[in-house]
Amino acid sequence: MVHIVIHSYKDSVQTQDLIYLDFQGSFESVDNIQLSNVEIGDLTLSTDSAQLIIGHHKLTGKKVKLQKPLAVIHKRKDMMDEGGGEYDVVTILKEKYVFSGRPGLIVQESLRGLTRIGK
């Protein structure tokens, strides 16, 4: 039998403030660049919405309450053995930001109106 201990949030060694971002799609990079530890954009949070700007694209998200809270746990480094271990509850997530729409294109003010389609 494997013995696993999960320490409560107040007794955890490592706690963090985390945000759950839910995207309805995927991110792709040019030339197969790995996306770990890469700045992908600017995130602005407000009380009920979020805005993520990546290059010339703007994504808008809406804050939604999770049906069930989500515990984020992290294995303690001093317990990296194969047969069990100890975990810390890093945070409890109760809400998320859902980005369900397509990205909007951001055009510089100086370039607006240069191309007209139709009359």
Rank of each mutant, 00 (worst) to 15 (best):
L111F: 08
I33E: 11
S29I: 02
G41K: 03
M1Y: 05
Q67K: 04
D22R: 06
G25L: 01
R76L: 11
K68G: 02
L43I: 12
G25C: 03
K75H: 09
G84E: 13
S49P: 05
I73D: 04
L21N: 02
S46C: 07
Q108W: 08
T44S: 14
I117W: 07
S110L: 06
Q24T: 08
E28C: 09
Y97W: 05
V30Q: 01
I6Q: 00
Q34D: 15
E82Q: 10
F27A: 12
G55H: 11
L59W: 00
M80Q: 12
Q34K: 14
T60P: 07
E39I: 14
P69G: 04
Q24A: 08
Y87M: 04
A50R: 13
V90L: 09
V64H: 03
E82C: 13
D22L: 06
G113C: 09
Q108P: 05
D11E: 15
V98H: 02
F23S: 06
G118D: 01
D11I: 00
S100T: 11
L45S: 12
K94T: 14
Q108L: 14
R102N: 12
G118W: 02
S49R: 09
P103V: 09
G85N: 12
L105A: 00
I54Y: 07
Q108M: 07
G104D: 14
V30P: 04
K10D: 04
T15P: 05
L21V: 00
L93N: 05
D31N: 05
Q51V: 14
V107P: 01
I54E: 00
I117L: 07
D81M: 15
